[in-house]
Design a protein around this nucleic acid. Structure first.
Length: 645
RNA sequence: GCCGGCGUAGCUCAGUGGUAGAGCAACGGUUUUGUAAACCGUGGGUCGUGGGUUCGAGUCCCUCCGCCGGCUCCA
């Protein structure tokens, strides 16, 4: 057995290993000083604690100190127990459900007669402090199923009983005990409750037992914990930073968009400034799509029920569709554009010479999302997609997918998204029958998608069972300026809709063939993408996107004429500017205002500038670029805009 | 949809049963301003909606609407 020590050393152990029962004991014999530092270990990516039973076969065990990467999975789990312990002390009637560590912290679900109140968090946190101070050791108890049953019945924990009953035969059943608190738990845990002192309770939320809305709603408390005080502070700072960037706040402050209670939830008003950003994004996309042979179309917002029956939407998407009645006939508002693009494809006989046919549309679709999931621009009912459907021969699919992926990287890269995570969603090998299309279609298509990613040398995650029922897909996730991942681009192959709508083309063999359809969107929904973009840039858009690119700031009213002449020049060069002047407002006031509006450039002009026909340039960063000739400034700025910087 | 919290002026918020407030914004005036907030004044509200309790409701109760946090990263 090879031990990788926290300090990076590697240690080969044999004798100690054989004679000891658990990792903790082995370390005691091996090196008591080391044993004090180690709180657990990682083995083949799985976390274990000091109770870990030493395996007879050789292998590698990576010992973890409290500060080590990965140790948080242990101490956060323990902190969840500490929290449950505190809750049990304060609310003895609370029933325990589950309490795992999660990506950014931990939670524990409780069944309590009264939901927790915000004030309760404070009390619970104080009680947790006590548990931490008491410094109980976490003791693991391994028991038989019968003993476990007896213990849980005595503890009167119905949810634990349910969990126990579902544990598979032969699995080792264990409890962990710290002080008076005992919990059915597989571990792993840190040695004692006093090791981690820096924690914070974050939210109370309702959560269904096992996430199923048919089950009872439990009360969940979220929290997080860190080994070092600084790390907790950094974490809390980052949450503040995310709040500072909140697109809902910035959207109002910068007059980008709004939602109106009188109109309805999830319906977006793009205000002039927001629409300016959107128009620039669209302009960029349209340019790039035309270069690649896409053709833009526009299609209706409604269609008869029959159409959605053929497409299959009525059988699997009906609850998300808005129904309208027209002259006694049933219509549905479109939740997707595909059937319409297919109708356009079918409007005449297609030949292989027409393929690939790339139909693109900024189509606004409507989806009846459940009210509880709506969230600012990120989850809405009005969805403007940068959508396109590519009709192609099966053997063209691979080339098309490669082109879409390249296009996505080009466009997203220009917007400052440089880190990508890619997933390839394929069939569930266990359950092949639930998918449409032929087995051959699937095998070829999955191979084609994989080949695209391999040829580009892109790392990707293969997600079995995540494919749509009509075909496999590639999704691109991007990392924003503060490291959050967002799923944007999607490229989906479809062999089912061509069949349902009986799409055909005449091939060069003189026979009719069935095309593939590729559904693809780069930004996805413009509304959602805009929300992401606002947060990504914290509202400070690069100059080519900025709704107002230049603020013109004359100092006194005698400089107004000159200011207007400068604005004319900017306008002639296609630059968006605002002349900010009011006889009541000082220059400082207007500078601050422009700054808060995150306008990239401010041009100040007073006597000096009028005299020398120049403008004093200030950036929104506060940097002073000094006086420049308006023409030189405009030329430089126009170049930046043209380069989309 | 479900659980909890919230809803007072355009915005941010005070106001716990007894005459609806502040700051900012808007508007009017004084000031003619040199790089993140000059000064004085004025208007602005069915306290989200509808109902109820009460002599009296922004405040207490119910209904609806909307917003916010969440709703398996499984002992």
């Amino acid at each position: 057995m090879i031990l990788k020590l926290p300090d990076g050393r590697r240690l080969e152990v044999n004798e100690t290993w054989r004679s000891a029962k658990t990792l903790g004991e082995a370390l005691q014999v091996l090196d008591p000083k080391l044993a004090k530092k180690v709180i657990g270990a990682r083995r083949n990516g799985e976390y274990v604690d000091l109770y870990f039973r030493l395996p007879s076969e050789d292998g590698q065990l990576e010992l973890l100190a409290l500060e080590d990467e990965g140790a948080q999975w242990l101490y956060r789990h323990s902190m969840a127990h500490v929290m449950a312990q505190a809750v049990k002390r304060l609310f003895p009637e609370a029933k325990l459900a589950i309490g795992p560590p999660i990506e950014e912290g931990f939670y524990y679900d409780f069944d309590v007669p009264e939901p927790f109140k915000p004030e309760d968090l404070e009390k619970i946190a104080q009680e947790m402090q006590k548990v931490v101070k008491e410094n109980h050791s976490f003791e693991r108890m391994e028991v038989s199923r019968q003993e476990a049953m007896k213990m849980i019945k005595e503890m009167k924990e119905p949810y634990k009983l349910e969990i126990l009953n579902e544990l598979e035969e032969g699995e080792q059943i264990s409890f962990y005990k710290d002080g008076e608190f005992v919990d059915l738990c597989r571990g792993p845990h840190v040695p004692s409750s006093g090791l981690v002192k820096y924690f914070q309770l974050l939210e109370i939320a309702g959560a269904y037992w096992r996430g199923d809305e048919k089950n009872k709603m439990l009360q969940r408390i979220y929290g997080t914990a860190f080994a070092k005080k600084e790390d907790l502070e950094v974490f809390l700072k980052r949450r503040e930073e995310a709040a500072r960037r909140d697109h809902r706040r910035l959207g109002r402050e910068l007059e980008l968009f709004s939602m109106e209670e009188e109109v309805g939830p999830g319906l977006i008003f793009w205000h002039p400034k927001g629409m300016t950003v959107r128009r620039e994004l669209e302009k960029f996309e349209v340019e790039e799509h035309l270069k690649r042979g896409y053709q833009y179309v526009a299609t209706p917002h409604l269609g008869k029920a029959k159409l959605w029956e053929i497409s299959g939407h009525l059988s699997y998407y009906r609850e998300n569709m808005f129904r309208v009645e027209v002259e006694g006939q049933e219509y549905f508002v479109k939740p997707m554009n595909c059937p319409f693009h297919i109708m356009m494809y079918k409007s005449k006989t297609r030949s292989y010479r027409d393929l690939p046919l790339k139909l693109a549309e900024y189509g606004t679709v409507y989806r009846n999302e459940r009210s509880g999931v709506l969230h600012g621009l990120l989850r809405v009912r009005m969805i403007t997609q940068d959508d396109a459907h590519i009709f192609c021969a099966p053997d063209q699919a691979q080339g098309m997918v490669a082109e879409v992926v390249d296009l996505a990287f080009h466009i997203l890269g220009t917007l400052g998204f440089k880190d990508y995570e890619i997933s390839l969603s394929v069939r569930d090998p266990e359950n092949l029958s639930k998918y449409g299309g032929t087995d051959e279609d699937w095998q070829k298509a999955e191979a084609a998608l994989e080949a695209v990613l391999k040829a580009k040398g892109l790392p990707y995650k293969r997600m079995e069972g995540e494919a749509q029922f009509y075909g496999p897909k590639i999704d691109v996730h991007v990392k924003d300026a503060i490291g959050r991942l967002w799923q944007l681009t999607t490229v989906q192959l479809d062999f089912v809709l061509p069949e349902r709508f009986d799409c055909k083309y005449a091939a060069d063999d003189g026979r009719e063939h069935r095309p593939y359809i590729i559904h693809r969107a780069l930004f996805g929904a413009l509304e959602r993408f805009f929300g992401i973009l606002i947060e990504h840039y914290a509202g400070a858009f690069p100059v080519w996107l900025a709704p107002v690119q230049v603020a013109i700031l004359p100092i006194a009213d005698r400089h107004l004429d000159y200011a207007q002449s400068v604005q004319e020049k900017l306008k002639a060069a296609g630059i968006r500017s605002e002349l900010s002047y009011s006889k009541h407002k000082t220059l400082s006031y207007r500078v601050r205002d422009a700054q808060l509006q995150k306008i990239p450039y401010m041009l100040v002009m007073g006597d000096k500038e009028v005299e020398s026909s120049s403008v004093a340039v200030r950036l929104r960063t506060g940097e002073d670029l000094g006086p420049q000739k308006p023409e030189a400034f405009i030329e430089e700025l126009a170049r930046k805009v043209a380069e989309r910087r």
